[in-house]
Design a protein around this nucleic acid. Structure first.
Length: 292
DNA sequence: CTCGATCCCTGGACGC
DNA sequence: TGCGTCCAGGGATCGA
């Protein structure tokens, strides 16, 4: 499940492997996850992919102006969200595509940039500069860029559960379920705590934990749970460092208490019931399934 | 403002 | 071997 570190890994890989290439043609399969498929097919051919950058859990492929457009004014972008199961990677045009490949961008070097997504929870959109400005404005701070001095007041300003805040892309862009749980475990904060209930020191700890964990995960090319592979088809390694996520019933590596799972903010949340003290009055709605 | 519920979608795990 | 069911969860949406 691609979150910030996984998307960063893919974006860096594509920056190396496809930046500078020109798109020759577009072929589409199922398009129900594409904003305006006809526009993609019409606008992309002839444009060069100038760069590939991450924005939250999105990738932005910066596109060159076409020959008939004024060079300075027109810098559109292809927005790509991998959803839960998306992958974006180049392949030789002759290679058999993965199942569920729905977008083929023929490149000027004989390869294709292909988007595959079995569940089609992803999203692809062609954005003019104005569209892009509007789209991106809806998102919160990048968790790696925000400083502790801004992070603490930000989370303390909301009454929502801290887990919900971390997952809210309008507050912070790029954090998903895995890294939210891992950060909360590291900072010893229960996921059901309200943001406004954290004191400055706890908020500061959470900020440090979040940044450390995201940076380490990027170094290890993300977490491969389910089927995440980067743009070179490699698995990430950070899943080997998970302390909470996916570890229901296993010993907390700090205190040996069994990690618990509960549904918080609508998501499976893993935490240590001893290290991460539940807020007063909170009663775990235990996740069903497997007693383990 | 914040919440939970529901939907989207397919593959994989699991129980029988 | 197969079949049904549950579950994964990012995001949109809707009603409470």
């Amino acid at each position: 499940m691609p979150e910030l570190p996984e998307v960063e890994t893919v974006a860096r890989g594509l920056q190396q492997s496809v930046a500078g290439r020109r798109v020759l043609s577009v072929a589409l399969g199922k398009t129900d996850f594409i904003d305006n498929p006809a526009k993609i097919a019409e606008e992309l051919p002839g444009r060069r992919i100038e760069s590939v950058r991450r924005y939250g859990k999105f990738m932005l492929l910066r596109l060159s102006p076409r020959a008939d457009e004024p060079p300075e004014e027109h810098k559109p972008a292809l927005l790509v969200h991998l959803g839960m199961t998306g992958s974006l990677a180049p392949a030789p045009a002759s290679a058999p595509p993965l199942k569920h490949t729905h977008v083929f961008l023929a490149l000027d070097d004989g390869r294709e940039l292909r988007y595959a997504d079995p569940r089609r929870f992803g999203r692809i959109a062609y954005l003019s500069e104005a569209d892009e400005f509007q789209e991106l404005a809806a998102f919160g701070a990048d968790p790696l860029e925000i400083g502790a001095e801004d992070f603490a007041p930000l989370v303390r300003a909301h009454r929502a559960r801290i887990k919900a805040l971390l997952l809210d892309q309008g507050v912070l862009r790029g954090v998903g379920n895995i890294y939210a749980d891992e950060s909360l475990w590291r900072a010893k904060i229960h996921p059901a705590r309200l943001g406004s209930s954290l004191d400055r020191s706890q908020a500061k700890h959470l900020h440090a934990a979040l940044q450390d964990i995201l940076k380490k995960a990027i170094l290890l090319r993300g977490s491969s749970v389910a089927s995440f592979l980067d743009s070179e088809g490699r698995r990430g390694q950070y899943q080997q460092h998970h302390r909470a996520y996916g570890r229901e019933g296993k010993a907390c590596s700090r205190c040996r208490t069994r990690i618990r799972r509960a549904i918080i903010a609508g998501r499976s949340s893993y935490y240590c019931p001893r290290c991460q003290r539940a807020p007063r009055g909170w009663r775990a709605v235990r996740g069903k399934r497997k007693t383990f």
